[in-house]
Design a binder for these strands. Sequence first.
DNA 1: CGGCGATAGGTAGAATATCTACACATCACG
DNA 2: CGTGATGTGTAGATATTCTACCTATCGCCG
Lengths: 114, 114
Amino acid sequence: MAPASGLSRRELLKGTLDMLILQTLTLQPQHGYAIAQHIEKLSEDVLSIEQGSLYPALERLQKKGWVTSKWGESPTGRRARYYTISASGRKQLGKEISSFERALLAIHRVMTHA
Amino acid sequence: MAPASGLSRRELLKGTLDMLILQTLTLQPQHGYAIAQHIEKLSEDVLSIEQGSLYPALERLQKKGWVTSKWGESPTGRRARYYTISASGRKQLGKEISSFERALLAIHRVMTHA
DNA sequence: CGGCGATAGGTAGAATATCTACACATCACG
DNA sequence: CGTGATGTGTAGATATTCTACCTATCGCCG
């Protein structure tokens, strides 16, 4: 994780974090640290989820009822809080995906001067 | 512009407003109100730019040197401030487009569980 | 005439999301 | 013993957008 050459790449489209987390949790329940790693890896290190964004986001999702959590043990034997997506979380994910695509299409129309 | 049936659609991907404004100004210099209308129309009413977002954004872009402005007269004969994209503004637009596309591709990879 | 909607510009303050920078703990490894 | 990876978390700053106002002119309709 050392910034290699002082280059700090970080580009998260704001407003997409919840969607990315929820999507990640559709694969299987995960703890926070693993969620962040999963997203960073799949994005080929383009996206980076800072802890200061991750944990508040998870709290937020939990408060909305979109994920549940319970303490467990990670593969490395450490205590970790595992998050599971709920039924309403899946519904929410669907909404976020479609509104994301809608917005994307709209932006595309503007950017290609239609 | 009356909300038709009380339905308030508004979906702007956060962080894309500057890019949309700069892109709009590559067509021709425009005043704020017309910029907002242009974006709303091209996006087929998916995106809506509120005045409270628009004018601060235009100030921001001006402060960064990406646009210049001067008072003029609109086609309807009203006083209006016309904004013009600068050379550095065009360079900035290019940067924003490529980082937007980078992020988009990354998000796509995560969302399709790659 | 009086009011309203569209055109045009703007501000104040709230809400929100994210980031930076910490603190804490355990484990493995040299 | 120190450091880096794993793991959770908080506090405070920062940035962006939104809601809700305000002002002004113009044209139209009743």
